[in-house]
Design a protein around this nucleic acid. Structure first.
Lengths: 145, 145
DNA sequence: TCTGCATGGTTAGCATAGCTAATGATTAGC
DNA sequence: GCTAATCATTAGCTATGCTAACCATGCAGA
């Protein structure tokens, strides 16, 4: 089967659709963790990106500071992160993951990836490599944006 | 640059990451439409998938019927969809898009795709084709799941 | 037919997550 | 040191998720 040369419009539409449904598919695993999607997403930034201030975290998650403040409240209450005052600027706080938070996040990531592996396990090696290449192309484009 | 043969684990992780950040990138366009994400997503199912009952719509959107009932309330109030009683089963309703709803949805889709086109416009034709192939692989896998 | 159960949808009430506006505490600039 | 900017929080609104309970309709079997 020859590969057709596709227009940018058409590929954008198809890529959007594929990414949308892929995320829907993996998200089904998150309920098992017992915390909401916003908390889970914020926790992932902390665990995989390291400690951050509230403003940085809000920007990374594309929400306003008051929203993030409340999300952090909930995470603290559940013992998943710690609030610490920044020594060099006492207005600011540093949000750090606890042992429990890190464990939960790794379990969540693992669940999503297992779900994805299950989806892809019948693909040929060549197809898997194509997905790998596509992921790199997308990540490179996003980095330059 | 030779293409490495990647493990399924590694590719799953990378694909997940790419899709996640891609959706985050396109979602920034949605605020311009003036309706919330759940309403927008439900409307897209109606507009692109045709009229559906409330239960079908709830299943498609992975939410419970009461949640979808309220989302439809909001869409009706804004004049974007119509509720109609099903003639053959008068318990059921059929939710149909209005002219206004269809127009809004097409504008939203167009905005997301413009954002995506902007992201991909500097890629080579070969890279675009790789994204096309990857989208097809993903959609095919999802269909068989 | 009619009785009882199943099904489609809504209502009520709760939790989470988004926003803006306003406030408090600290830092930075002059 | 005074003033303005910055970091975070509080208050209060809307939107979106859930379960439990309900009403209306349809269906199946005695």
């Amino acid at each position: 089967m020859p590969m057709a040369r596709q227009s940018l419009d058409e590929v954008s539409r198809k890529l959007h659709n594929a990414a949308l449904h892929l995320m829907r598919y993996v998200r089904t695993q998150d309920t098992a963790l017992g915390i909401g999607p916003a908390q889970l997403s914020a926790l992932s930034v902390i665990v995989f990106g390291g400690p951050e201030s509230l403003n940085e975290l809000a920007k990374a998650e594309q929400v306003r500071p008051p929203t993030m403040s409340r999300i952090v409240d909930a995470l603290v209450k559940e013992g998943l992160v710690k609030r610490e005052v920044n020594r060099s600027d006492r207005r600011a706080i540093t949000i750090t993951s606890t042992e429990k938070g890190t464990r939960l996040m790794h379990e969540g990531r693992s669940r999503r990836e297992k779900q994805l592996i299950n989806l892809l396990k019948n693909l040929s090696q060549s197809e898997v490599d194509q997905l790998d290449q596509a992921s790199e192309i997308v990540m490179r484009a996003l980095k330059h944006s």
